[in-house]
């Protein structure tokens, strides 16, 4: 772990470095953000069996491919963390950018999915956030998740250049925790929005 930066970075009164503890708190709060949305979705889904007729318009292969992409990007960021622990900054830098690439592929697939529903001339296939409650949930959940993906990619890019100079190597683990959480959220969104018909 780097000894540079503010003392709070390395202080460990709780047995956990402060930065990492802060990320755990952040993730605990994120459980309420996404968990609350998912809990509402489940309640409404159980009460509206007709939603299964809307779910058939989601593209399972695209959702499955994106699950594969996020699981693989999770592997990349944990390998970056492993390299940072070994102070192999070049390898860590490489895997961070592989992870950012995974995020980019995820967003491109999401763009393909969104555009096929929002930019079509076929009224049967046109699904906007105002179409009905199912699609409101769909766009809110996947949109908020995509914003988290973008946020993670930006932070990773910023961290990577500091990392290249050998500074603040511990931040690779911190952004990794966040990225794995984003992966876990998708692990639940995929069956809820795509698989359950």
């Amino acid at each position: 772990m780097s000894t540079q930066g503010p003392i709070a970075t390395n202080r460990s009164a709780t047995g956990i470095p402060t930065g990492r503890l802060a990320v755990w708190w952040l993730l605990a709060s994120e459980i309420f953000i996404f968990g609350g949305l998912i809990a509402c979705y489940i309640l409404y889904r159980l009460n509206n069996p007709w939603w299964s007729g809307e779910a058939v318009f989601t593209k399972v292969p695209a959702g499955a491919f994106n699950t594969f992409v996020l699981l693989t990007s999770s592997l990349f960021i944990v390998l970056a963390h492993d390299a940072a622990e070994k102070k192999d900054v070049n390898r860590a830098f490489k895997f961070i950018w592989y992870t950012i690439g995974g995020g980019l592929v995820f967003l491109l697939v999401k763009y393909y999915e969104y555009s096929s529903k929002l930019l079509t001339d076929d009224p049967e296939l046109l699904k906007t956030p105002l179409t009905n409650t199912y699609w409101s949930f769909y766009y809110t959940a996947t949109g908020m998740h995509a914003l988290h993906v973008i946020g993670g990619m930006v932070i990773m890019a910023l961290i990577s250049f500091d990392l290249k100079k050998g500074h603040n190597l511990h931040r690779v683990e911190l952004i990794g925790l966040y990225w794995h959480f984003v992966d876990i959220v998708w692990i639940f969104l995929f069956p809820l929005l795509y698989i359950a018909k």
Binding site: L71, S74, L75, V78, G176, L177, H180, F181, D183, I184, I187, F188, F190, P191, I195, A196
Partner: peptide, 18 residues
Amino acid sequence: TAFGIALVKTYYVAAYFM
């Protein structure tokens, strides 16, 4: 398979990747 396995996947990501 859809939801039970989502929980198992979550466990593996949390326990080993995180």
